[in-house]
């Protein structure tokens, strides 16, 4: 479904990604792990079109998406949930969801999608008229994911849902992602929380200094010596 080959990318004076190869198949739940500054977020931003790839190819369903503007990428069915959520602070939860469904023209479809995400996140339903700017950190993350789900994307990119969250909301966020995956959404997750993530996902890539250094299924990586030493503290 998604295929990155030899992707190099970065910002004005700083190249971050040097050679990223990864692949996500339909229905899979895949994670990108790695230390701070390894280029995990940049990888997602490059796929989503916010950072332009300097080299390499990014294919989605067999078509190149390099150089597309972010909103075009989004319209192809790639949802992106950023680390800072990028919510519309002055709008209610419900309105945030409606903007999330901007590309959906069918009103009935929007309504059923709203029901669906409220079912997934009952807490958002309770507060649907509250302004997004007044939500707690955990609620924000849920709303960000919920908004990303509104156009029913075929692939969801999620950046560090655990960032800045207490352990309980983190678990809730992971639980929501697990449910989503079980319902058939393809997810590419970026995380620092290695242990929990590896127990959750089908496969994972380990990114270091802008390169993929390891890949494997969850259990494979959990039993890998390097991973244990570097990330699990064993």
């Amino acid at each position: 479904m998604l295929k990155l080959k030899g992707v190099e990318s970065g910002y004005d004076l700083l190249q971050v990604l040097w050679d990223v190869e990864l692949e996500v198949d339909e229905g899979e739940f895949v994670a990108i792990l790695g230390p701070n500054g390894a280029g995990k977020t940049t990888t997602l931003r490059t796929i989503a079109g916010y950072v332009r790839a300097l080299k390499g190819s990014i294919e989605f369903n067999g078509k190149s998406i390099v150089g597309l503007e972010p909103h075009r990428v989004s319209r192809l069915g790639i949802g992106y949930v950023s680390e800072s959520s990028n919510l519309f602070a002055g709008m209610s939860i419900h309105e945030n969801l409606l903007v999330g469904a901007y590309t959906v023209k069918n009103k009935q479809l929007i309504a059923s999608q709203v029901d669906l995400v409220f079912e997934l996140f009952p807490r958002l339903h309770e507060r649907r008229n509250q302004l997004a700017g007044t939500l707690s950190g955990g609620e924000r993350k849920m709303l960000a994911i919920a908004r990303g789900l509104m156009p029913s994307p075929s692939l969801l990119l999620v950046d560090e849902p655990s960032l800045g969250l207490a352990p309980i909301p983190t678990l809730a966020a992971f639980e929501a992602l697990k449910q989503l995956s079980q319902r058939g959404t393809t997810i590419l997750l970026v995380e620092q929380n290695v242990n929990t993530t590896l127990h959750l996902v089908d496969r994972a890539y380990v990114l270091e200094q802008g390169k993929v250094v390891l890949e494997g299924t969850g259990p494979q990586l959990l039993s890998n010596k390097d991973v244990q030493e570097a990330y699990l503290g064993i």
Partner: peptide, 8 residues
């Protein structure tokens, strides 16, 4: 950025 994510 949030608006672009929503396809705007």
């Amino acid at each position: 950025t949030g608006a672009q994510m929503a396809g705007i």
